[in-house]
Amino acid sequence: MTSRQLSKFAARAGFWLLVALIVVIAVFPFYYAIKTSFTPSSDLFRVELWPTRATLANYVQIFSQRSFLQAIFNSVLVATSVVFIALLLGITASYALGRVRFRGRTSVLLIILGVSMFPQVAVLSGLFEVIRALNLYNNPGGLILSYTIFTLPFTVWVLTTFMRQLPLELEEAAIMDGATPWVTITKVFLPLMWPAMATTGLLAFIAAWNEFLFALTFTLTDSQRTVPVAIALLSGGSAYELPWAPIMAASVVVTVPLVVLVIIFQRRIVSGLTAGAVKG
């Protein structure tokens, strides 16, 4: 082997080592959570890479808790409703922002951008008051309402980017046929926007599913909590003795659907996340 071949070989080996390192760091914590979730609580003091005795007891335990099932139901309800509202309001708004030229458009875009950069804590006390006034405290409705603060701006933004890219001719033809803007949206654009809506909807769903601060603050009782709060507040007999195995089982249950979705739709998600960043 010449020195040139040798250095080339070293470079390739180094590259594969880097790839392996990246994969291990990315995947290992999740793998370890899965492993822990199948380990009997009595075996947790032994640190091992795979369980010597696998058990489903932790899953049985969390699924026999009514509050955990209720939390999953609440999370699904909240996240789906938020996605539905954000898409409904977003698609019409993005038509206005993406296809029509009117005075005040720049200001509206700036407002949307401003809201998406908001620290959530800054609206906490004001929103608390609004939610109590609407009688939505300790109720999934309050979370659905408050989650629009972060899902709506980016839904509008990403959909606007996609809406802009649709060909002009479509709209011209619709106008020639005397279609009103509403008909243009529902009959012409909507069928073409499904991929974009799936992407944004998925991202909004993940954001709503993962939200913690509002969910922690605007709910009080176990029956109204969402999954992240339920997992954060799972506790054992004492403060020093957390039920790690059931916590990991609950974590795996709420994470696996997300991971599967993300892996299936990874192309879509990447394009949604970067929409505007590079296409703009």
């Binding site: 999740f30 997992i231 997300l258 991971v259 892996i263």
Partner: peptide, 22 residues
């Protein structure tokens, strides 16, 4: 590899905090 890299992003912050806490 890209799918593997996306996993941490897909995991809810609360869950990843609990995983690491453990």
């Amino acid at each position: 590899v890209r799918a593997a890299v996306l996993i941490p992003w897909a995991i809810p912050t609360i869950v990843s905090a609990q995983m690491w806490a453990w």
